[in-house]
Simulated scan of single mutants.
Amino acid sequence: MKLATLKDGTRDGQLAVVSRDLKTAHLADGIAPTLQKALDDWTFIAPQLDLLYQTINSGRGHRAFDFDPANCMAPLPRSSQRVAGTAYLPQIERACKAAGQDIPADLREAPRLVQGTGDAFLGAQDEIELAYEQWGIDYEAGIAVITDDVALGATADQAHMHIKLLMLVNDITLRNLQQAEQGSGYGFVQSKPAMACSPVAITPDELGDAWRGGKVHLPLRCSLNGKLTGQPQAGADMAFNYPQLLAHLCQTRSARAGSVVSGGGVANKEVKKGFSSIVERRHQELIADSVISTPYMLFGDTVRIEMPGEDGKSLFGAIEQTVKQAQTRRSR
């Protein structure tokens, strides 16, 4: 099943069911007005959404219309809990090597989690509006899961059953602000503006055999200004899978329906696969040549993030965003 949230002038938008080929959609207003409402009562609502999904895939949806990703908000426009994990250790290993440091030993034993901004996610084609290029604007391509209620103390096996949807994310990071926040000993705030999400969120069964072991075993394609920058395999070097990230989160708390948990930027040990962020390329340049030649994003730059299925067709639709200077700063 594939679900999207369409812009309707409200904060939470209008839930729609999207066809498997991403060509048509059908409003789900007779079933659930928003994705959060569906997640709150997923056991009852999901079968009804799935029936509508089967209907539009068969071409029998009498109120179906052309699907336009530009009219999409994030599938879940806001969440009470947004968490990012350190699931891809090659990314951290390169960062430590570039800095002349060893990777912390305990990082291999359990993931680290960071609380992120969840009150307003960006749609797949929303512009990245920021005040200054000097902040070090970077994209970070990853995958996030969306849950229903996960109980305090849930094991990884138990948490696995509560993963209801997956989506692609661009966890936009301001690298030149990040270092100071890391040094403060507190979490990221200024360096992590609103995250962007793919046009649709999909149920795990849409991935077929590519969803196994709590991981997505497919390449994640990243391009900057039309040039391919990486297509790392999302399942190859993931040290902690999504159920493990959820179980770690739920050691001290429950996760309510609509919690969004990502594994961090997708990274492979093999650098020939390319990178899911600019900072990773810069780290590799520093390791190989001791000189950084790749700049961070500038106003007018466009990033595209997409995941093809085993048939080569887009699974989630594409995140495609252009960096724009915030109007409030330009007017001063």
Rank of each mutant, 00 (worst) to 15 (best):
G153R: 07
F121C: 00
T117S: 15
P204E: 05
M195W: 06
V114C: 13
A151K: 15
A180R: 07
L165V: 08
K227H: 11
G142V: 02
G153A: 11
A159S: 14
D149L: 12
H162G: 06
A196K: 04
V145A: 10
A196E: 01
L218R: 06
K215T: 11
T203V: 08
L224C: 02
T117Q: 15
K227C: 12
V145I: 13
L168E: 00
K164T: 04
L218W: 02
L224Q: 00
H217I: 08
V114W: 12
P232D: 11
E206T: 14
I143H: 07
N176Q: 08
A234Y: 05
S223E: 14
I202P: 04
K227D: 14
D138K: 02
L177P: 01
L220M: 05
N170E: 05
I128V: 15
E206H: 09
C197F: 09
L218V: 07
I146S: 04
L224E: 02
G153P: 12
A210I: 12
H162A: 06
E206F: 13
W135N: 12
E181Q: 07
G185C: 06
G153M: 08
Q178E: 12
V150K: 06
V114G: 10
D157M: 12
Q134H: 14
D126M: 00
A124T: 02
E127M: 15
A196R: 00
L152I: 14
A154S: 15
Q158K: 13
L130G: 02
K215C: 14
L168W: 07
T155C: 09
A144V: 11
D209E: 15
A156F: 05
A201N: 03
Q179R: 13
L174T: 04
P111M: 09
V169K: 04
Y139W: 12
D171T: 07
A141F: 08
T147I: 06
V200Y: 06
G214P: 00
Q115C: 13
